[in-house]
Design a protein around this nucleic acid. Structure first.
Lengths: 163, 163
DNA sequence: CTATTTTAGTTATTGTCAATAACCATTCCG
DNA sequence: CGGAATGGTTATTGACAATAACTAAAATAG
């Protein structure tokens, strides 16, 4: 039999103690985002599309001609990580690199027509998945959650960036 | 010059577009928890202590004599991952395995006296770090955030576990 | 205008980490 | 008793990200 990630128990099985873990914001954040991450590939119908890769496509779509260095800065990636993520989409004909005429070191990145289609499709699937994650919250609660999370993120802006 | 994770820009640099990313709960969760994770090792004064390892110590401290299989189930780990995490703390004399008299396959895990001290110290440091993360929120906002996150986590309890 | 430095990007190397699979020992149960 | 299930460890593998080293091109200092 294959080795499952073990638990079908409730995440807070009341027969055990959790120390101070349940009172830690970081612990709850991690749990929630692991949950989100765990279903992501399945939700978009392709295990190889991670949140990071999706974010790359989204940002390139929203900023055509972006430099790779800028993409890295926006998403908090190292240069090699950006190269790899772009390679991934380029190998699927969704992103094209175009050398800048003025500065031939620099390559602008663009969505191809196929990339546009893929992004549009992904946006739908990801939005659906995201609503599923928070299905138990009302619209106003969801708004509250977003504003609280945004404040946390903004208040720590001097640290490393994310996904 | 060494290759920094690039950005000193605001996490939402207004000169770029983010597509639908900012409206996704998953994106915000990931950002917040990457932020939290990034400072964790530094906050506890030891890079090798990860949130996962800390969680293990916390749970063992709260449930003396726990089976390793139970520990894995509680934290959503595979058996090998639990073995490794326990090895880590055992090598620091913080956790001891004790073979069960009744069932000689099973090993209960316990904090050693050094483990108790380490846990007590870590609890303080982690709590301080966690408050730092949410320093911009009022007490009641923090309470709201926790309850919203808990509802998300609870509502998805049938999926993979965390940390 | 050359020579040095800096910047954009890629490639190579390394290390961590987690998952699977295979394995041993013990217990359960027909 | 003998096979199936359980607790735990070990071995192997693969994904991934970080650093470092490198190429090419541009900026700048003298």
């Amino acid at each position: 039999m294959s080795e499952k990630p073990t638990a079908e128990l409730d995440l807070f099985d009341s027969t055990f103690e959790y120390g101070q873990l349940p009172s830690l914001t970081g612990f709850l954040l991690r749990k929630a985002s692991v949950l989100d991450f765990g279903n992501f590939g399945e939700a978009v119908g392709d295990r190889t599309i991670t949140p990071l890769r999706y974010s790359v496509l989204e940002v390139v779509g929203a900023n055509p001609g972006l430099q790779q260095v800028q993409l890295a800065a926006i998403l908090g990636l190292t240069k090699p990580a950006a190269t790899l993520a772009i390679d991934f989409w380029q190998s699927r004909n969704c992103i094209a690199r175009r050398q800048d005429r003025k500065d031939r070191r620099s390559h602008g990145v663009y969505l191809t027509p196929a990339g546009e289609d893929t992004l549009a499709e992904l946006q739908k699937l990801v939005a659906r998945h995201d609503r599923g994650l928070t299905a138990s919250l009302s619209a106003s609660e969801l708004g509250q959650l977003h504003s609280l999370l945004q404040r946390i993120v903004a208040s720590q802006a001097e640290e490393v960036a994310a996904v």
